[in-house]
Design a protein around this nucleic acid. Structure first.
Length: 500
DNA sequence: TTCATATGCACC
DNA sequence: TTTCCGA
DNA sequence: TCGGAAAGTGCATATGAA
C-alpha cells in the first residue's frame, strides 16, 4: 500500500524534476498520511535516521521552506518536543523510552496503520535497515523475546517481514527466519583495544589478522548468481565486477562471505582510502583494481554462523584461494601477535584485528569477540573556533576548530567533537567565551590561545582546508594548560604524516 | 555556457 | 568512523 | 553490557550566478 503510494508520488515528482531524492520521495509520502500515520512514522524516523538527511522530509511535514541542515535540525527538535509532551501525559516525571512509545503506538494501531508502519520499514526506508529501537518495540508490542526478534531480523535482513509475521502469527513465527543467500545480513562489529597483547589477554586462542583500510563487502553466491553488498547493505555488484570474477573462482557455489576490498599499489602497499572509495561511486570505471581479502564466512555450502571462528576459518582455507584470504595467524603468544601487528604496519596497513577463535558469528552485534587494534598518533593543536552544540549538547560550546602553527599564524585542519566529557564541555563553554573575538552564526571565533592534545588515525589530503591536509578521526585527549600556542605542532609536522 | 556553491549520500 | 553516558 | 547521541570528510551532481 505504502509502496504503491511512493511509486505514484515518485512519478509525479519525476515528471517535473530531473532527479528525485530519497528524502523528497519520503516527504511526498508523508504529506499524504493521516495524522496518526504521521505520528507513527515520525516517531520511528526521529529515532532512526541521521540528522542531516531529514531536511526535506521534515520541512515538508511542517510546510516550511526547504532549506539547509539548520532548518532540519530545528524541525527535528520540534518533533522531539512533541514526543516529549506525549510522554509526559503517560507518567508524571517518568521517562518513556522511544522503544516503549513505539511499542505502545504499534499495539494501539489499527491493522491498517500497522500495515503502513511495516510498509514504511520495508520499503519506504533503506532496504534491510535495522534498528535496536524497532527490535525493542516489536518485542514489547508482540510479547516476544528480544533476542529472538533481533536474531530473526538480523539474519533475514527483513525487519518488515519479521514485524508482519509477529503481528499475524505471534512469537512462534520467528522460528521461520534464518540466513538467506542474496539477502544482506547486518555485519558483525568490533570493539577496540589499545594493544595486540591487551586484546589477546581476554581469549584462550586468537586469530590476529591484518586490518586493511578498505571497504567492507558481503559477497553472496547461489549458483551463478553473485551479489555484493557494502557494510551498510547497499548493493554494489555492478561497480565491483572484478570482485565478482574473483568470487566466481571460489570453490563453492553457495556462500556468504565477509571480506574487505582495497586498492593496492604495485608494491603491495595500500592506496589512500579515497582511491578505494572512488570504486564505489555510482559511475566509475574499474581502472584501479580491487584486491579481495576474505576474513569470514557466514555460509559455505552450509550455514556456519553457529560454528566457532576456528572452524569457519578452516572452511575458508579449504575453499578460497590463498590470494583472496586475509593474512592472519592463530596464536596465544603475545610476542607473536605483536610481531605480526608490527609487520602489518610495516606493510602500510592500519593495524590488526584480534578475534576470539572460539566465538560465533553474531550478526549486527558490537561484541568483544572482535577487537580492532590501531596505533593512534597525537598532536598539540590550537583551538581557532567553537560551534554551539545541538541535542544533548544544546547550550554548550561543542565542536572545536583545530589549527596547526604555520609561520606566525595558524591553519585550520579540521574539526572535532569527539572525546569530550560533560565536564570538559562545561569548562570549554566558559573558557572559549572568555577568549572570544567575534561570532558568525553557530561559530564562536576565539583568539588562538588554547592548546589541545588531539589523537588521530592519520592525515589525508584535503581540498576543503587551506593547508591541503585534514586529520582523520580526530578526537580530544585533553586540554594542555601547560603549553603556549607557540609550542603547538606545525603544519609541516602534520604534513609529515602524509607519507606514512 | 561556464563556474561556483549547495545538497545529498557514501564511507572509514 | 570514536567516544561518552545512561538505562 | 548495550545502544543512542554527538558530528567528521570526500565525491558527484543539481542548482544558481555570472
Amino acid at each position: 500500500m505504502l509502496l504503491s503510494r511512493i511509486a505514484e508520488t515518485s512519478q509525479s515528482v519525476a515528471s517535473t524534476r530531473s532527479r528525485i531524492t530519497k528524502t523528497e520521495r519520503l516527504a511526498a509520502t508523508i504529506m499524504e498520511m493521516t495524522p496518526t500515520e504521521v505520528l507513527i512514522g515520525v516517531s520511528y524516523l526521529s529515532g532512526r535516521l541521521p540528522q542531516g538527511r531529514l531536511g526535506v522530509g521534515f520541512a515538508a511535514i511542517r510546510d516550511v521552506d526547504v532549506a539547509p541542515a539548520a532548518t532540519a535540525r530545528l524541525t527535528l527538535t520540534e518533533t522531539d518536543s512533541t514526543l516529549t509532551e506525549l510522554q509526559a501525559t503517560r507518567g508524571a516525571g517518568s521517562k518513556v523510552r522511544r522503544a516503549e512509545l513505539l511499542a505502545g503506538l504499534m499495539s494501539a494501531a489499527t491493522p491498517e496503520e500497522q500495515t503502513l508502519l511495516f510498509g514504511l520499514l520495508g520499503g519506504g526506508l533503506r532496504q534491510g535497515a535495522l534498528d535496536g529501537v524497532m527490535v525493542d518495540a516489536l518485542a514489547t508490542a508482540f510479547d516476544a523475546p528480544r533476542a529472538s526478534v533481533r536474531r530473526a531480523a538480523m539474519l533475514s535482513g527483513n525487519l518488515a517481514g519479521v514485524a508482519e509475521a509477529l503481528a499475524m502469527e505471534g512469537p512462534t513465527a520467528l522460528e521461520r527466519f534464518g540466513l538467506e543467500v542474496g539477502r544482506a545480513v547486518q555485519p558483525m562489529l568490533a570493539s577496540t583495544a589499545e594493544t595486540a597483547s591487551d586484546a589477546l589477554a581476554g581469549f584462550a586462542e586468537s586469530f590476529v589478522e591484518w586490518k586493511v583500510d578498505g571497504a567492507r563487502l558481503q559477497i553472496h553466491r547461489e549458483g551463478d548468481d553473485i551479489d555484493v553488498y557494502t557494510r551498510s547493505l547497499r548493493p554494489v555488484t555492478r561497480s565491483v565486477q572484478d570482485i565478482v570474477a574473483k568470487a566466481r573462482s571460489i570453490g563453492s557455489t553457495s556462500f556468504i562471505l565477509d571480506a574487505e576490498a582495497i586498492s593496492l599499489k604495485g608494491d603491495g602497499t595500500p592506496e589512500p582510502f579515497q582511491v578505494t572509495m572512488t570504486r564505489f561511486a555510482k559511475k566509475s570505471a574499474p581502472d584501479t583494481p580491487l584486491h579481495l581479502f576474505v576474513f569470514d564466512a557466514l555460509r559455505l555450502d552450509e550455514d556456519l554462523i553457529d560454528l566457532p571462528l576456528r572452524e569457519r576459518a578452516a572452511r575458508i582455507e579449504a575453499a578460497v584461494p590463498d590470494d583472496f584470504v586475509i593474512p592472519r595467524i592463530l596464536t596465544s603468544d603475545p610476542g607473536e601477535a605483536e610481531a605480526f601487528a608490527a609487520a602489518a604496519l610495516a606493510q602500510g596497513h592500519e593495524g590488526v584485528m584480534v578475534k576470539d577463535a572460539d566465538s560465533l558469528y553474531s550478526a549486527g552485534r558490537r561484541g568483544s569477540a572482535w577487537l580492532k587494534v590501531k596505533p593512534a598518533h597525537t598532536l598539540d593543536l590550537v583551538v581557532l573556533g567553537v560551534e554551539w552544540g545541538s541535542g544533548r549538547r544544546r547550550g554548550y560550546l561543542s565542536n572545536i576548530h583545530l589549527g596547526a602553527r604555520d609561520g606566525d599564524g595558524f591553519v585550520m585542519l579540521g574539526k572535532t567533537f569527539k572525546g569530550m566529557t560533560d565536564e570538559m564541555l562545561a569548562w570549554q563553554t566558559v573558557r572559549f567565551q572568555e577568549i572570544e573575538t567575534h561570532r558568525d552564526g553557530q561559530v564562536v571565533y576565539v583568539r588562538p590561545e588554547q592548546v589541545v592534545e588531539i589523537a588521530f588515525d592519520g592525515v589525508q589530503r584535503s581540498s576543503r582546508y587551506p593547508g591541503g591536509v585534514a586529520l582523520r578521526f580526530a578526537r580530544v585527549k585533553g586540554y594542555r594548560q601547560d603549553k603556549k600556542p607557540n609550542e603547538a605542532d606545525t603544519l609541516d609536522t602534520v604534513r609529515g604524516y602524509l607519507q606514512t
